[in-house]
């Protein structure tokens, strides 16, 4: 974990991302209503809830795609409530999208190299000329990209265009691209949707490994309750824009409000998932 502490500059357990009293309305729709969450360094936090509960809206606000109507979002003491997405990414928050959002005309490697963009310092002129500094920088980033490719076992397809890859692989490439940013916090919007059991287990393992290896804080939206309960340190439950519960997987599963609102008649979350 020492490497993790070096990378994020915060020790495990400290509040890293503070979402405070955040609301977002679209016309008359209250997508997110007065939500507060303190995300701690190094944890895996899952956000669950029925469709339309405001989970993706919350993610979009954290990553700067939407700005909250009220409330604030603070990353390591820095107010990012109104920061544009490119700035949020540069500050160390990476994300994947619900629908795969790869650059389909490019190779796997080019996609992953784009994840290194925020770390590249060489300017327009330097990359025009390409020699010296810009070139050395390129090589260093390439090495880092290869490391991520190896981590996600994508080395063999690095030169293939992403458009032609199978669904599960494309999901994995998107994860690789996000990890290439070396994010402090990784936002994953349904990374296992549409996968079979085996693929889901692979992705769950990659998430856990990234979390342990690099200390990356994970915020995960996922519908597969078995996976959520297995890998999460903490679970926040949303319903109709509000957070109705927040706690350990076991605690949340026993929470009467959650069982009532989210599960209807089922007695446990696992039962509901099945």
């Amino acid at each position: 974990m020492s490497a993790a502490a070096d990378r994020t500059g915060a020790s495990p357990g400290e509040v890293q991302l503070a979402v405070a009293g955040v609301s977002k309305h679209f016309g008359g729709v209250r997508a997110v209503e007065d939500v507060s969450i303190a995300v701690r360094q190094g944890e895996i936090l899952s956000v669950i809830g029925p469709n339309g509960a405001g989970k993706t809206t919350l993610l979009n606000m954290i990553s700067g795609f939407f700005h909250p109507g009220t409330g604030s979002i603070t990353l390591e003491g820095r107010n990012i409530t109104h920061a544009p997405p490119s700035r949020v990414a540069a500050l160390g928050i990476a994300r994947t999208f619900q629908n795969i959002a790869l650059f389909s005309g490019m190779t796997v490697l080019d996609n992953v190299m784009l994840g290194r963009h925020v770390h590249m310092k060489a300017g327009v002129l330097a990359s025009f000329v390409y020699w010296g500094w810009a070139r050395r920088e390129e090589i260093a980033h390439r090495a880092r990209a290869e490391e991520v490719l190896e981590f996600l076992q994508l080395q063999d397809i690095r030169k293939q265009p992403t458009g032609a890859l199978a669904y599960g692989l494309r999901k994995r490439v998107e994860l690789a691209r996000a990890l290439a940013l070396e994010p402090k916090i990784l936002l994953l919007d349904e990374p296992m949707a549409g996968m079979n059991q085996e693929e889901k287990q692979d992705v769950a393992r990659y998430i856990l490994d990234a979390n342990r290896l690099w200390g990356t804080t994970i915020i995960l939206i996922e519908h597969d309750m078995a996976v959520v309960m297995d890998i999460s340190d903490r679970v926040a439950v949303f319903e109709r824009g509000r957070k109705i519960a927040d706690g350990s997987p076991d605690g949340v599963q026993r929470d009467p409000a959650v069982i009532h609102a989210y599960l209807g008649t089922a007695r446990t979350l696992r039962e509901a998932a099945e």
Binding site: S63, S86, A89, L114, H117, V118, R177
Partner: peptide, 12 residues
């Protein structure tokens, strides 16, 4: 290809 995704990569 996609302004939205590019911006999520930190591209201004």
């Amino acid at each position: 290809e996609s302004q939205q995704v590019a911006t999520a990569m930190g591209i201004d």
